[in-house]
């Protein structure tokens, strides 16, 4: 599903080239649950962003479901990620001005899903996550765990093949974190959603089927 070959990314700062990713080779098959580990600044987020096509890379090849991402135009890339990838963030990144319902609905709006279908899809996921009663609340009215739940719901609503989660439990207490991780596990095993998460915690990483260690932009073998 994902094939990264010799991915390298750098930034130039004051004449020095500073490498964020160095020669990353990675293959992810459909249905895998991968945890990326590493200290701060090791490149976890950058790698997730590259995989999520939010960020560019300088060298290397990236194939996503058989499509050569490095050769696609901006528009095609955005088309690709918005239909196939869901994002979950450490800081949830919900829109404060929108209700839970509207937040979950947003990705569907950008995929031109019909209104009636949207309603069905959002209701479905609200049901499944047991947050129907919260659908008219605004994010600041929810606890962190509930907000992240909405975040995951939003990531899943468009039925993506891949979920990218950047420190999804970083802002949560251990109980809330556990619940989210259980949810991921369930999604992975029952629905076959591919998941890649970046995390600090060994415990959370253990939920994955495979662990990748990053240090200074390199994969440690």
């Amino acid at each position: 599903m994902i094939e990264l070959k010799h991915i390298t990314k750098w930034v130039n700062s004051g004449g020095n080239r500073f490498f964020l990713l160095r020669d990353i080779n990675l293959t992810v098959k459909e249905g895998e649950f991968i945890s990326i580990m590493g200290p701060s600044g090791s490149g976890k987020s950058t790698l997730l962003n590259v995989i999520g096509m939010l960020d560019e890379f300088n060298e290397g090849e990236y194939n996503f479901i058989g499509q050569p991402v490095h050769q696609l135009k901006e528009k095609q890339r955005s088309q690709l990620y918005k239909t196939h990838i869901g994002f979950v963030f450490q800081a949830y990144h919900l829109i404060d001005e929108l209700t839970v319902y509207e937040n979950i609905e947003t990705p569907l709006l950008y995929q031109n899903v019909k209104a009636s279908e949207r309603q069905a899809m959002v209701s479905d996921i609200l049901d499944r996550f047991n947050i129907v009663g919260k659908k008219d609340l605004f994010p600041p009215q929810l606890s962190g765990g509930q907000q992240q739940l909405v975040g995951v719901a939003r990531a899943l609503v468009a039925k993506p093949k891949l979920i990218l989660a950047d420190e999804p439990t970083g802002n949560l207490n251990s109980k809330q974190g556990e619940e989210i991780m259980e949810l991921f596990k369930q999604l992975n095993t029952e629905d076959g959603v591919t998941i890649i998460q970046a995390t600090h915690s060994e415990r959370n990483a253990a939920y994955g089927s495979k662990i990748i260690n990053l240090l200074d932009g390199r994969i440690e073998k």
Partner: peptide, 13 residues
């Protein structure tokens, strides 16, 4: 800015 970022990630053109 943040909202725009979120929306873009969610697929806004």
């Amino acid at each position: 800015t943040k909202e725009i970022g979120i929306r873009k990630v969610l697929g806004a053109s």
